[in-house]
Amino acid sequence: MNQDVLQRAKQIKLVIFDVDGVMTDGGLTIGDDGLEYKTFNSQDGLGMKLLKNSGVQMAIITGRTSKVVTQRAESTGVAHFYQGVEDKLVAFNELIAKLNLRPEETAFMGDDVVDMPPMLRCGLSITVPAAPKSVQARAHYVTTKEGGRGAVREVCELIMQAQNTLEAQMAPFFQC
């Protein structure tokens, strides 16, 4: 693991996730009923719950609006979420001001150019392998796992590892 990434991860108090392409594989399924369906990874969900238990706050900032995102946020302990956001930097700035955080205390995980403004402002910018090369080149960290296939869990564990909380969060699962 790159030492710069670990040093950045040590400072993180808030992780902000995009949804499509990060928490999902980026596919959009819209049924005949007009409803939007998304598939989330259960291991990502557990990683998010463990990260929250370790003391790191989480948020979602997404351009789309969907009831399933609200349900996912509630089930994983995401306290702050913004949907239907056209300018993600505006939402990012509002959120860190509200939480009285400095940009370097935040991580932003996105997968496309619309995510770049907050990714360029935060302390730890993260993307996925399917992101455009221009996004990958500007991110501090590119996950080994794909969006919707464990990338979020990878990031949660990376931050907990850097903050020396991973072992404590995992310990209950390895006791007989």
Rank of each mutant, 00 (worst) to 15 (best):
Q11S: 13
Q11W: 02
I12Q: 05
L14R: 03
I16A: 00
F17A: 05
D18E: 09
D18F: 04
D18G: 07
G21W: 11
G21A: 13
G21F: 12
V22N: 02
M23Y: 10
D25W: 06
D25E: 11
G26T: 08
I30G: 10
G31S: 14
G31N: 12
D33F: 06
D33R: 06
D33Q: 09
L35K: 15
T39V: 14
F40P: 00
N41M: 10
Q43D: 06
G47L: 04
K49A: 13
K49L: 15
L50W: 04
L50H: 04
L51Y: 02
S54E: 10
G55S: 12
G55Q: 12
I60Q: 04
I60N: 03
I61C: 11
I61R: 00
T62D: 03
T62Y: 06
R64T: 09
R64A: 08
K67A: 15
V68A: 13
V68K: 08
Q71P: 00
R72Q: 05
R72E: 06
A73F: 04
A73W: 04
E74K: 10
S75G: 07
A79R: 12
A79E: 15
A79K: 13
Y82H: 14
Y82Q: 09
Q83T: 10
G84H: 12
V85W: 04
V85T: 12
E86R: 15
D87M: 06
V90Q: 14
E94S: 13
K98F: 11
L99T: 07
L99K: 04
N100W: 04
N100C: 10
R102P: 01
T106L: 03
T106V: 08
T106S: 05
F108K: 00
F108Y: 15
M109Y: 02
M109W: 02
D111L: 02
D112W: 07
V113H: 11
D115R: 01
M116T: 01
L124A: 09
S125Q: 05
I126D: 00
T127A: 07
T127V: 07
V128F: 07
P129Q: 10
A131W: 03
A131G: 06
S134K: 12
V135S: 05
V135W: 01
A137R: 11
A137F: 05
R138D: 05
R138C: 08
